[in-house]
Write a protein that binds this DNA or RNA. Structure first.
Lengths: 182, 182
DNA sequence: TTGAAGAAAGGAATCTCATTCGGAGCAATT
DNA sequence: AATTGCTCCGAATGAGATTCCTTTCTTCAA
């Protein structure tokens, strides 16, 4: 199993602005799916030797492409079968600091500020609907929180961390201004 | 680095319905944060020996508490700086099968069916707003998709995988019917 | 065109750590 | 009190991460 954590030394100087090549993409793709692969196995899949892959992974970590390696826990199996997304409408601006205090709760998995008909968006996973209620109570205790809308998840069909691949076709849509040049 | 992947043999028979004890919680908590810890380090933090921790991790995997081990990629650093949540209103029921085809796209990270004023909720990370537009185009190409609302993420303050800890206090809220006895 | 320099890959050696094995402690059951 | 089952620990083993060194390829300059 590759040690994605402890290796600090990179043979050459840290280069930030190097575009990912096909090897890097492949390595990232595999590791995003299963970080437990050995460097040898990873190398054989990418067409490189183990030391070469090792070198690249070190660089991918050093340049921030890989943020870390984590065990993915199963919510229901670990006592938190209740998943919900909570939209928060708050008054004022820069009051988000208050919401950040919620990051202390292990039930809160994501906090984003968004554009749209709401200010903040939370992803929350907790033990029960009662726990969600308790969390909403804490939310409303904040002075700046005006309203919330909760979307309780009924079924999860897909849930994964960021993937390495990019679908080029999504950007191939022609610019409306280019219609004339068709 | 613990190999959370390849070990198959568990010394005793697989037991499904064993409640997590304090050791398990601690181990899960550490691994959810950093799966690159050695068993020795993990053991010293949990107050167990390396083989004991190893045994428990095997069981946690075998019983589905740990779903896997992955490298967490950085969206912007890997070419996908654009994050959005998309609410999908669709006609009919059981038409979700169509949406599941979107799981093929690496840009789609989550697909949930939810209760609330919308049917499905997608988490999407892509290269640009144009790519999001391309993805919405694919959405509207589906016969059952009636409308969508997109929440484009401006800032992400917290984003992590399911955590092991549970905040007991959230469930301590007294039942409204118990007010008289309060 | 040739030479030099830098970057990266592969092979082999080393060394850390995952993994296994056997035995001991402890609790529950009979 | 004895037995059974479970989980722990310590030591031994082996796999694989990590390092070192050499070679190759590319790039830039003369």
């Amino acid at each position: 199993m590759p040690n994605l954590e402890k290796t600090e030394t990179v043979r050459d100087k840290a280069q930030e602005a190097r575009p990912l090549d096909a090897f890097d993409r492949r390595i990232l793709g595999e590791l995003a799916q299963d970080a437990g692969l050995s460097y040898a196995e990873l190398g054989s899949r990418a067409g490189l030797s183990a030391p070469a892959v090792h070198e690249r992974v070190k660089r991918l970590r050093a340049t921030g492409r890989i943020r870390g390696t984590v065990a993915v826990l199963d919510g229901p199996a670990t006592g938190k079968p209740f998943l919900a997304f909570v939209h928060v409408d708050s008054t004022g601006w820069g009051k988000t600091q208050e919401l950040l205090a919620l990051a202390e709760l292990p039930e809160v998995e994501e906090i984003h500020s968004v554009a749209g008909d709401t200010c903040m968006l939370l992803k929350v996973r907790c033990a029960s609907s009662r726990a969600l209620e308790g969390l909403l109570a804490r939310l409303y205790a904040l002075p700046s929180v005006k309203a919330t809308r909760s979307y309780v998840v009924l079924s999860t069909f897909l849930e994964r961390t960021p993937q390495a691949e990019i679908t080029e076709a999504l950007e191939e849509k022609r610019n409306p201004l280019d219609i004339a040049t068709g």
